[in-house]
Protein backbone atom coordinates (compact mmCIF):
# COMPACT_ATOMS: atom_id res chain seq x y z
CA UNK A 1 0.00 0.00 0.00
CA UNK A 2 1.27 3.47 -0.89
CA UNK A 3 2.25 5.65 1.98
CA UNK A 4 0.41 8.88 2.49
CA UNK A 5 2.24 12.04 1.49
CA UNK A 6 4.18 13.46 4.44
CA UNK A 7 2.63 16.45 6.15
CA UNK A 8 5.73 18.62 5.96
CA UNK A 9 5.61 19.07 2.19
CA UNK A 10 4.59 22.62 1.50
CA UNK A 11 5.57 23.73 -1.96
CA UNK A 12 2.95 24.35 -4.60
CA UNK A 13 4.11 21.28 -6.55
CA UNK A 14 4.09 19.02 -3.47
CA UNK A 15 0.60 20.12 -2.51
CA UNK A 16 -1.03 19.32 -5.84
CA UNK A 17 -2.43 16.12 -4.28
CA UNK A 18 -4.36 18.23 -1.74
CA UNK A 19 -6.21 19.97 -4.52
CA UNK A 20 -7.02 16.62 -6.09
CA UNK A 21 -8.20 15.06 -2.80
CA UNK A 22 -10.67 17.81 -1.87
CA UNK A 23 -13.74 19.14 -3.64
CA UNK A 24 -13.74 22.91 -4.36
CA UNK A 25 -16.07 23.77 -1.46
CA UNK A 26 -13.94 21.79 0.99
CA UNK A 27 -11.17 24.40 1.00
CA UNK A 28 -11.63 26.40 4.18
CA UNK A 29 -10.61 29.81 2.89
CA UNK A 30 -12.15 29.77 -0.55
CA UNK A 31 -15.81 29.00 0.01
CA UNK A 32 -18.09 31.38 -1.83
CA UNK A 33 -21.17 32.25 0.29
CA UNK A 34 -24.42 30.87 -1.10
CA UNK A 35 -27.09 33.22 -2.33
CA UNK A 36 -29.97 33.89 0.03
CA UNK A 37 -33.12 32.04 -0.96
CA UNK A 38 -36.42 33.81 -1.49
CA UNK A 39 -38.76 33.06 1.39
CA UNK A 40 -42.33 32.76 0.16
CA UNK A 41 -45.28 34.07 2.22
CA UNK A 42 -46.30 30.53 3.30
CA UNK A 43 -42.82 29.73 4.63
CA UNK A 44 -42.57 33.13 6.36
CA UNK A 45 -45.90 32.59 8.12
CA UNK A 46 -44.77 29.11 9.21
CA UNK A 47 -41.47 30.47 10.56
CA UNK A 48 -43.26 33.23 12.50
CA UNK A 49 -45.85 30.82 13.91
CA UNK A 50 -43.10 28.48 15.10
CA UNK A 51 -41.11 31.39 16.55
CA UNK A 52 -44.16 32.50 18.56
CA UNK A 53 -44.71 28.86 19.59
CA UNK A 54 -41.13 28.60 20.94
CA UNK A 55 -41.45 31.91 22.82
CA UNK A 56 -44.77 30.86 24.38
CA UNK A 57 -43.42 27.46 25.35
CA UNK A 58 -40.28 29.04 26.84
CA UNK A 59 -42.52 31.29 28.96
CA UNK A 60 -44.50 28.21 30.03
CA UNK A 61 -41.33 26.40 31.08
CA UNK A 62 -40.15 29.48 33.00
CA UNK A 63 -43.57 29.57 34.71
CA UNK A 64 -43.26 25.87 35.60
CA UNK A 65 -39.81 26.44 37.10
CA UNK A 66 -41.04 29.49 39.02
CA UNK A 67 -43.96 27.45 40.38
CA UNK A 68 -41.65 24.63 41.42
CA UNK A 69 -39.32 27.07 43.17
CA UNK A 70 -42.18 28.88 44.95
CA UNK A 71 -44.67 26.16 45.89
Amino acid sequence: MDKLPPAHMNTEHDLAWVREALEPDQFAESKVPLERRRLGPGLLVLLWVLRIYVILMTVLIAYQVWQALHP
Binding site: P5, A7, L15, W17, A21, L22, F27, A28
Partner: peptide, 16 residues
Protein backbone atom coordinates in the same frame (compact mmCIF):
# COMPACT_ATOMS: atom_id res chain seq x y z
CA UNK B 1 -5.73 28.16 -7.32
CA UNK B 2 -7.55 28.53 -3.98
CA UNK B 3 -5.41 29.19 -0.87
CA UNK B 4 -4.47 26.20 1.26
CA UNK B 5 -4.64 26.03 5.04
CA UNK B 6 -3.36 23.45 7.52
CA UNK B 7 -7.01 22.40 7.89
CA UNK B 8 -7.18 21.59 4.17
CA UNK B 9 -3.94 19.64 4.36
CA UNK B 10 -5.10 17.43 7.25
CA UNK B 11 -8.52 16.88 5.71
CA UNK B 12 -6.94 15.98 2.37
CA UNK B 13 -4.81 13.31 4.07
CA UNK B 14 -8.00 11.82 5.55
CA UNK B 15 -9.71 11.95 2.15
CA UNK B 16 -6.73 10.26 0.50
Amino acid sequence: IPPLTSEDLKRARDRL
